[in-house]
Design a protein around this nucleic acid. Structure first.
Lengths: 348, 348
DNA sequence: TCATTGTTGGATAGCGTTATCTAGTCACGC
DNA sequence: GCGTGACTAGATAACGCTATCCAACAATGA
């Protein structure tokens, strides 16, 4: 058994280079104002020693010294639900360019876990906390989350919320209403007339905006939707399933089932197929979000591309790049994709 | 502007509770052998103070003190490629139960970044490093990665590699060969006879195993595959695209195109459709990996379910639960899903 | 009575860094 | 000669926490 060697520390490097520890620190990790300092030859000697020993700075020690870690926490409900991974990818990319790392945490949509997690974050001293958990309509839960976030903010962390919310923190959102409206108009333009809408949980802001925009778009083109043809369900595959069950008696009088998320759309399609309804021949199904793979297997599928990758970047920019005072909400554009073709959102 | 309050520290808690800092540490975070210690009344007072102040321990300080963070690093090529997110979800779940957090890092398949990253990890003092980057066939790169991992190991981190590899570290894999064989046999059992295979990059172990098993299964049922009908491409959607281009002249004589990953299968399907070939009427396409959503939109799709969620759990168990000496490879079973129906792999 | 053992909680030191201070060197200008 | 400024690099302290040691005290047994 080889000795359980410990990783080299700055002390080791300094000793090998024959300089003091602070000098080594200044040479390697930068002294005043982030600039590396020290005479060129000293720097060279220290860098040489660091290379020889395979030294890497300990972020934990830096964090404890500086009072804050070079880290942001990114909180999602579930990592493997489609959008999360894309957002994480986006924020990691953006963070990397700034020499920051991202700590991903999940709540699994469990309010209890969520609060525990938020408390735990207090000790971790992140630069920022980005909440990308799709919010529920539970007012009590919202309030306690807001309280926890406020404490974190008081402790010096920047807070950003992704998605629509009423928490009062800086926010990154997509123009759900506008994009939904364009999607609806495009579908009417393609000759569709009789619509059913699959919305999210009643009261959920994202769902309201998407349905609202969609109905506006239809109305703008002279198409009305019967209240009976708007059903509420969960933003998930199974929600789509249930929506079809609710609409079953009306299927004969519908051209398009517009689901307010791609996951729902998949559930709708699967269930319609079980009922022997041919998609898109008998009924066309549309979504919202743009899960990339869907376009391949469902050619001509209509949806709205939400720039999830940019969400992460925007969140980080909002939080780290000191912005002018008023600027605390970033609205990104969604791109309607109608029958496989992206529509430039020119008339915003 | 409220004062830029700093988060409470153990010192604050101790002061408020009127005890010494070490006593507070013992009461809150556990003293000897992880057990919390101190008299009941002292504990109560400290906990009360911690609650009042909203105290949470600083993992950075604990890491620096203990010489090791309660953390494992999980390294993937890209976070938003399908399987990664599922594996991450699995390992996070498992880690959470052990009070450990997971630091996800990406290489973006850039060898340069990969080495930088591995060096950087030296300073982070993780308990373990789990590599889930699908390996290339680049021998030089493999060697330098192995070297970096060896250094980390010498510094006291446990190493696990996910997926087939020749690095010589403990490994978690799936029985690619066996599952592929069962898949092939099942397809022959369902009446298919003329197969083309879409394999991964030449020399890639996973690709070799899957193709090998598949061919074995066919042979076992008396079906031969022409060498011309095995094409090599990348494990991606675009790879599937190109595979169809290569097979174009042969499409008339093929019943099934068996792609060695679901991503490839999607590319194959999309390209076939562009060529006016109807799937699965004219040609059936199968995959490997089991991207859950595919089953919904491609009913009757055949593939192998790889238990990605379990990969993460198994990796963590391998690394943290002190295992008996010889045990350093875990092989998980893949479940063939033939025309939408899972086949129990009983005859393993 | 005294030594033994165990329990409790304070004092101290140290983990790997960096901010701050200080001492030293050098060049410059009057 | 000497004050001034600009630099370099060492000494020291501190960040938040826990391992270790130690003093105080009680309970036990002979």
């Amino acid at each position: 058994m080889p000795k359980p060697a410990k990783p080299p520390t700055l002390t080791d490097v300094a000793r090998l280079a024959g300089v003091s520890v602070p000098a080594a620190s200044r040479a390697l990790n930068g002294g005043v104002r982030g600039k590396k300092s020290g005479s060129p030859e000293l720097r060279e000697r220290v860098e040489e020693a660091a290379r020889t020993l395979g030294y890497a700075v300990s972020p934990a020690a830096q964090a404890i010294k500086g009072g804050r870690a070079r880290t942001v926490a990114f909180i999602v409900a579930d990592i493997d639900d489609f959008g999360s991974a894309t957002m994480i990818s986006g924020i990691m990319h953006a963070a990397e360019e700034r020499g920051i790392s991202v700590a991903v945490r999940t709540t699994r949509d469990d309010p209890m876990r969520e609060l525990d997690l938020l408390t735990q974050l207090r000790g971790e001293r992140h630069l920022a906390v980005v909440m990308a958990t799709s919010r529920t309509t539970d007012a009590a839960r919202e309030a306690s989350v807001k309280e926890q976030l406020t404490v974190l903010q008081d402790h010096g962390a920047k807070i950003v919320v992704i998605g629509d919310n009423e928490l009062g923190f800086p926010t990154v959102t997509v123009d759900n209403r506008h994009a939904a409206r364009l999607l609806a108009e495009g579908l009417v333009g393609a000759g569709r007339r009789r619509f059913a809408l699959v919305s999210g949980p009643a009261g959920q802001i994202t769902a309201l905006e998407r349905v609202g925009g969609f109905v506006e778009g239809l109305a703008h083109r002279g198409v009305a939707v019967d209240e009976r043809d708007i059903v509420h369900t969960e933003f998930s595959r199974d929600g789509g399933h249930r929506a079809v069950d609710q609409l079953r008696d009306r299927l004969g009088e519908i051209d398009v089932i517009a689901a307010m998320s791609d996951a729902m759309a998949v559930g709708v399609i699967a269930r319609l197929r079980e009922f022997g309804v041919s998609v898109p021949v008998d009924i066309e199904v549309t979504g919202f979000d743009h899960v990339p793979m869907l376009g391949d297997v469902l050619p001509g599928f209509s949806t709205v591309e939400v720039p999830l990758e940019q969400f992460g970047e925007a969140a980080l920019a909002l939080v780290l790049d000191e912005h002018a005072d008023g600027v605390d909400t970033v609205g990104l554009s969604g791109t309607p994709i109608i029958h496989g073709e992206a529509i430039a959102a020119f008339d915003r």
